[in-house]
Simulated scan of single mutants.
Amino acid sequence: MIYHLALAGDWAAAGPAGEYRVSTLGRTLEEEGFIHASADLEQARGVAGRFYRDVAEPLVLLAIDEDLLGCPVRREVPDGMTEAFPHIYGPVPVAAVVSATPFAVEDAG
């Protein structure tokens, strides 16, 4: 299982489309080249604390089954970081998301 923080509105729009194509805040899969993800809940909390503190729109934490993606997932270390993060190199089929849980940035600690 890997995780992705999504704006609730972006996730809601994925339902009718059948796939999710948002990489990160304000950037699409096409713009970024991959979809950012986290390897576990602790990593997702760290991402929330670093990048989502000022986001007013409700967030959801997507739990994604890698086996259902149908595209490559690579663990890569971003510039300036020391830990590897999963990067999803294609759209996320809605069927690959096993849960979408409301997430409050305060949960990030």
Rank of each mutant, 00 (worst) to 15 (best):
I2Q: 04
I2W: 01
I2E: 10
I2V: 15
Y3K: 07
H4Y: 08
H4I: 01
L5W: 00
L7Y: 12
L7T: 02
L7M: 12
L7F: 13
A8F: 06
G9Q: 09
G9F: 01
D10P: 00
W11E: 04
A12R: 14
A12Q: 15
A13R: 15
A13E: 13
G18W: 13
G18Q: 11
Y20D: 07
R21N: 08
S23K: 09
S23Q: 07
T24M: 07
L25Q: 09
L25P: 02
L25E: 04
G26L: 10
R27N: 14
T28E: 07
T28D: 11
E30I: 11
E30P: 09
E32F: 05
E32D: 07
E32L: 13
H36I: 04
H36Q: 12
A37V: 09
A37H: 05
S38K: 05
A39N: 05
A39W: 04
D40W: 12
D40T: 03
E42T: 01
Q43D: 01
A44G: 05
R45N: 03
G46E: 00
G46N: 04
V47R: 02
V47E: 05
A48D: 07
G49C: 04
G49Y: 05
G49Q: 06
F51K: 02
F51D: 12
Y52S: 01
Y52K: 12
Y52M: 10
R53H: 10
D54N: 14
D54A: 13
V55T: 11
P58H: 00
P58K: 06
L59C: 03
L59K: 00
V60R: 14
L61M: 14
L61A: 10
L62D: 06
L62S: 06
A63D: 00
I64T: 03
I64R: 05
I64Q: 03
I64V: 15
E66F: 01
E66W: 06
E66Y: 06
E66I: 11
E66V: 15
D67A: 15
D67V: 03
L68H: 07
L69M: 04
P72H: 08
P72T: 08
P72E: 13
E76Q: 12
V77M: 05
P78K: 14
P78S: 08
D79L: 14
G80F: 09
T82M: 10
E83T: 09
A84L: 12
A84C: 11
A84K: 12
F85Q: 08
H87W: 10
I88L: 00
P91I: 10
P91K: 10
V92A: 00
V94N: 03
A95R: 15
A96P: 06
A96Q: 01
V97I: 14
S99K: 14
A100E: 05
T101C: 03
P102C: 07
F103L: 02
F103I: 07
A104T: 10
A104W: 08
E106D: 12
E106P: 01
D107F: 04
A108K: 01
